[in-house]
């Protein structure tokens, strides 16, 4: 490729894996050092490219889980999809010391910075928590106290990504509330929500519409559409609701 490189245009670069950390049975965090990392905002993603011995390439997008404050370390949390081309490699084959080709940071729409204020409403479905934990980590690192609520939907208790860290963040920072719903299985004695998100749940958990929260919703497409439509029904301003859907194309 002899294409001219323009400043600002994305280019591929190599990051080196420095740590890997299982988060749940299906998800793993991979921390890379990216020498020429230009910094990022919480909520942005990267594209990862794998090249096979025969030259075949597969490219996927992954949200950045780490806050800007940790650059040039960049952490991705990847959910393994059994029929995926890329995620099984990232979650099972990739080792510390390996190089990974990536480009980014990408996207300026689904981002939150502490000075954007709040109140902040974060709604996560499954691994949709990843860009939102970057926002919470950034919020904590910036010492901010923007009033924040997270509604986090997971299949089961064991499937809650960053569960311990969320507990710690609630204890150690102010003005943060985390509400879980477990849609498929609940541990004995679970008193929290145990159904998929719906307008009733959002009415109970979300800020009221007259508080004009800034809302970020990330999850599978049907989850995001239910959450966004529910909030609009509840009177929230669509212009303050930002969504990031993910779906099978990322891994089909």
């Amino acid at each position: 490729m002899e294409r001219r490189t323009l400043p600002g245009r994305l280019t591929w670069q190599l990051g080196e894996v420095v740590t890997t950390q299982p988060e749940t049975a299906r998800t793993k965090s991979i921390t890379l050092i990216v020498p020429n990392w230009m910094g990022h905002q919480a909520g942005q993603h990267v594209d990862v490219r794998l090249t096979a011995a025969d030259g075949y390439q597969a490219e996927r997008s992954y949200s950045i889980a780490s806050p800007p404050e940790e650059a040039p370390r960049v952490t991705l949390t990847v959910e393994r999809l059994d029929d995926g081309e890329v995620s099984p490699y990232l979650t099972e084959e990739l080792r510390v010391g390996d190089k990974l080709e990536l480009r980014g940071p990408i996207g300026g729409y689904f981002v939150w910075e502490a000075q954007m204020g709040g109140p902040l409403l974060l709604v996560a479905g499954g691994s949709g928590i990843v860009p939102l934990i970057a926002m919470l980590r950034h919020r904590a690192a910036a010492g901010g106290s923007v009033a924040t609520r997270l509604l986090d939907s997971s299949r089961s208790y064991a499937d809650i990504i960053y569960r311990d860290e969320l507990d710690r963040l609630v204890k150690n920072t102010t003005m943060l509330e985390v509400v879980h719903t477990l849609t498929r299985a609940q541990p004995p004695g679970w008193t929290g929500y145990h159904r998929r998100i719906d307008p009733e749940m959002l009415r109970e958990v979300a800020w009221s519409s007259d508080q004009r929260p800034l809302t970020f919703i990330c999850g599978p497409t049907p989850f995001v559409e239910t959450a966004a439509a529910s909030l609009v029904t509840l009177g929230h301003d669509p212009a303050r609701i930002k969504t990031e859907r993910f779906g099978p194309t990322g891994e089909a």
Binding site: L6, P7, G8, R9, L10, H45, D47, S61, R103, G104, I106, G107, G108, Y109, F110, T221, T243, E244, R245, F246, G247, P248, T249, A252
Partner: peptide, 20 residues
């Protein structure tokens, strides 16, 4: 066909246009 947000096209767009 998989419906995502325009945000998902950001990487491809920035491959062509020299800004976000």
């Amino acid at each position: 066909e998989n419906k995502l947000d325009g945000n998902a096209a950001a990487g491809t767009l920035q491959e062509i246009f020299p800004f976000e």
